[in-house]
C-alpha cells in the first residue's frame, strides 16, 4: 500500500472543489459531465441538506477524491439505510487509503443520522470498485437489480 498523501482531510465539498471533482470523474470515465455534477452539487451540498453527503478528500488544498451518498427511507421496501452512489479517487493517489477514509467518513455521517447499514450498486464488470467495496467488508445485499429496454 502506498503512503497516504500528506495531511488528507475529509470534509464537505465546496463549490470551489467542483472543477477537481469533474476532472477526476472525467479522467476515470472518459466522459466530462459538468451539468450533471453541478446538479449533484446543488442537491447534495450546503447547509440544510439533511441526510445527503458530498465529501471530498483534501490534501494540502487539492481534492484527491470524493464520495457522495444519502439516507433513503423505505426505498425498495427497505428500512432507512445509507446509499453510496459515487466514489472516486484520483488514479495516481489510489491504493493509499483515501477511498477507505472517504467511506469511513460517510459511514460516520450515516451513523449520526441513525442508520446502521450502507449499500451501493455497481456494474458487475466494474471489478476495481467492486474489489474496493469488498475489501471494506461489503457483501451481496438481499436485492437483485433488474432492467429492461423500453420499446419505442
Amino acid at each position: 500500500m502506498r503512503q497516504p498523501p500528506e495531511a488528507v482531510a475529509v470534509r464537505p465539498a465546496r463549490r470551489g472543489d467542483l472543477d477537481r471533482v469533474i476532472a477526476i470523474d472525467a479522467a476515470v470515465t472518459g466522459l466530462p459531465k459538468r451539468s450533471y455534477w453541478l446538479s449533484v452539487y446543488r442537491r447534495y451540498s450546503g447547509a440544510g441538506r439533511v441526510g445527503r453527503y458530498f465529501l471530498v478528500a483534501d490534501s494540502v488544498g487539492e481534492v484527491r477524491g470524493f464520495i457522495i451518498g444519502d439516507v433513503r427511507d423505505w426505498e425498495f421496501g427497505s428500512p432507512p439505510c445509507g446509499w453510496v452512489f459515487a466514489i472516486d479517487v484520483e488514479p495516481r493517489f489510489r491504493v493509499a487509503g483515501i477511498g477507505t477514509r472517504l467511506l469511513a467518513a460517510i459511514c460516520a455521517n450515516f451513523r449520526r443520522a441513525g442508520v446502521f447499514k450502507v449499500r451501493t450498486i455497481l456494474a458487475h464488470d466494474n471489478t476495481l470498485i467492486l474489489s474496493f467495496f469488498r475489501s471494506q467488508g461489503m457483501m451481496a445485499a438481499p436485492f437483485i437489480p433488474l432492467e429492461m429496454d423500453i420499446e419505442v
Partner: peptide, 19 residues
C-alpha cells in the same frame, strides 16, 4: 454466471483473510 464471475473476480485474497 455473470453474477458468479463478478463476485469471484471482486474478492481478493486480502479480502478473504478479513472475511
Amino acid at each position: 454466471d455473470q453474477m458468479t464471475k463478478a463476485t469471484l473476480a471482486s474478492i481478493t485474497l486480502a479480502t478473504m483473510l478479513r472475511l
